[in-house]
Write a protein that binds this DNA or RNA. Sequence first.
DNA 1: CCAAGGCCTGAATG
DNA 2: ACATTCAGGCCTT
Length: 271
Amino acid sequence: MRIDVRGSLSSGQAFLWEEDGGMWHVINGQDVLRIRGDGRTASHLGGRPDFFRRRDDMARILGSISRDRDVARAVRLSPGLRVLDQDPFQCLVTFIISANSNMPRIRSCLSRISARMGGRAEVGGREYRTFPTPARLARASPRDIAACGAGYRSPYVAAAARMVERGELDLARLRRAGYAEARAALLAVPGVGSKVADCVMLFSLCKLEAFPIDRWMARILGGRFGLGRGSLTPRQYGEAHGRLAAHFGPYAGYAQQFLFKAAGDARGASW
DNA sequence: CCAAGGCCTGAATG
DNA sequence: ACATTCAGGCCTT
């Protein structure tokens, strides 16, 4: 199945990207990815990032998660949707900032952080600002970060950058760790709760069983899984996550992404 | 562990 | 025009 580049980029996983003459340019950490319409990806840094997780066995994954009727329908609606494999530090900062916010503001805040603190990269005759390194962001004060529009999340972002810079949070190692270990390590970061941890794990740490339950997902699955309307307490989140992981299986994160995309499309979301 | 309240900020609503 | 409300939660009491 052909990868749906636009749909995947605009499904709430990534925010620093733009379409440019039939191509997409994505800021992924210190890298700038040039993505063609068919999903073929070139790295400015010269590595071989698997941004669209092409190594995943999609037939197996779709077969597994499509045992659920709602997921099967969502897959039929957006068969080219993919879970992205993003730069972990950028992803961590992104979802700390996402708390109690909305997509346009998340994007504008991240854009300013890159514009003011990111490196420069010339790609296709245009200059891009990449995402700041942990070291660079660790040097920034909460005021600097607040000036980018992060609001009360600013000290969390500063603290997270310092933890990564000092090696107290080893994101590269967590990519190879199990779900429980990665989750525990992330929850030790200020500004990171269950939901943000699941986002970081699914979108940048290869934990395909992670199933972020945000306000949207709570509404989408509310009746079926007894999630109720209000916000989930940590205990409720844990119990719900257990039920969802058991129901959707080892690729529950993919299921979540298809459900989220379908619900967003249904209400005519403009992102 | 649970509940309630507060929180930057800005677009959308009344 | 001006005041609430609400938004992909989390932290503190």
